[in-house]
Design a protein around this nucleic acid. Structure first.
Length: 352
DNA sequence: CATACGTGGGG
DNA sequence: TCCCCAAGTAT
């Protein structure tokens, strides 16, 4: 008879192979009663939503330096937080981060239960379970992309995602231990991230190699199955990048809802099937001989760049001039930074 | 329940 | 080059 997967085998593996991460309390420290700061757990989990560990590390460290407590973050200015989040993507997370920090401050601290956590902005089924287990050792079951992959292989779940999600959740719940819930949650995700990887899983050194049914059948690397994705259409647009004579840049704060919501960007017509020539004001606009190319989650974008120098006295309704000394390309979403880089080259060429 | 929502790295 | 994907959530 084949082995049954046991949490203890995974925990033993985690005790010696846990990754060292800036937001993580090691299994030996946890065993000694040292628990992580719930604020750090929450912050890291929000940043890690659909985002790689490598991308998150520097943002996490920077946020903790600037805002060491949830109260400090709650008191931050919105535009400062959005500027620091720039480049990390999924900007609704940053807006919800502030809402959540302010709600938690009002509550006097983070709640511990899944239900209470899930009532907060930006915290869904996965993140509530992650915080409750990692910060408080509540025996909640985390189900993220890693766990879905591990469970689909351990139990050979052939039904494609997302239809198989509840089946996978049941398997994951059956394995979740009452003790060391936080270590277990991080262990199963570490397993998915380091051994049970999407393309070439390292089954030979997996602590669950014996009970893994997909490995026994030689089909581990084909799971989980997923429904095919829709092709990405290409949209077109124009970015109008204007510099005032004193060096200030003409920019707009995008509305909170929708793509790049709450972020600073360049004025320009809405992106669609064709480029609509609608500059924000009359000026001697020059078309830059290069496009900014960018791919979002669900479409490709080709952005023409138009540049102009504006006189000192101009004002435009709904737009703002960002002074030279407070302007930083790093505070822009990546597509806007790409557009800026092309514009800057053009400005430099024009002035030579 | 399906879709919108970023980005950078790897195969 | 291009597609896949990464500690998902909101609507």
């Amino acid at each position: 008879m084949r082995d049954t997967a046991k949490a203890s085998d995974l925990l033993d593996w985690y005790d010696t192979h846990a990754r060292t991460l800036p937001w993580r309390t090691s299994p030996s420290d946890r065993a000694a009663g040292i628990m992580p700061d719930p604020y750090a757990v929450w912050l890291s989990e929000i940043m890690l939503q659909q985002t790689t560990v490598a991308a998150v590390k520097s943002y996490f460290t920077r946020f903790l330096l600037l805002w060491p407590t949830v109260e400090a973050l709650a008191a931050a200015r919105d535009e400062d937080v959005m500027a620091e989040w720039a480049g990390l993507g999924y900007y609704a997370r940053a807006r919800n981060l502030l809402k959540c920090a302010r709600a938690v401050t009002e509550l006097g601290g983070f709640p511990q239960t899944r239900a209470e956590l899930e009532a907060l902005p930006g915290i869904g089924p996965y993140t509530s379970a992650a915080i409750s287990s990692i910060a408080y050792d509540h025996p909640e079951t985390v189900l993220d992309g890693n766990v879905e992959r591990v469970m689909s292989r351990l139990y050979t779940v052939l039904e494609p995602l997302p239809d198989s999600k509840e089946t996978l959740r049941a398997h994951a719940a059956g394995l979740t231990p009452d003790q060391r819930a936080g270590d277990y949650a991080q262990a199963v995700m570490d397993l998915g991230a380091t051994l049970c990887t999407p393309k070439s899983p390292a089954c030979g050194i997996c602590p669950w190699r014996a009970p893994c049914t997909a490995r026994a059948e030689g089909i581990a690397d084909t799971l989980p199955r997923k429904r095919p994705k829709a092709a990405k259409p290409t949209r077109l647009g124009i970015a109008y990048i204007a510099r005032r004579e004193d060096g200030a840049w003409l920019m707009e704060r995008r509305p909170d809802k929708g793509l790049l919501g709450g972020m600073l960007g360049w004025p320009g017509a809405a992106w669609g099937d064709e480029r609509v020539a609608a500059p924000p004001l009359e000026a001697d606009w020059q078309k830059v001989n290069a496009e900014a190319l960018h791919t979002f989650t669900h479409f490709h974008l080709r952005l023409d760049i138009h540049i102009a120098i504006l006189p000192q006295d101009v004002e435009i309704e709904g737009l703002e001039f960002v002074p030279k000394h407070s302007f930083s390309p790093k505070a822009l979403p990546t597509v806007m930074r790409k557009a800026f880089d092309l514009a800057q080259s053009a400005f430099n060429t024009a002035s030579q």
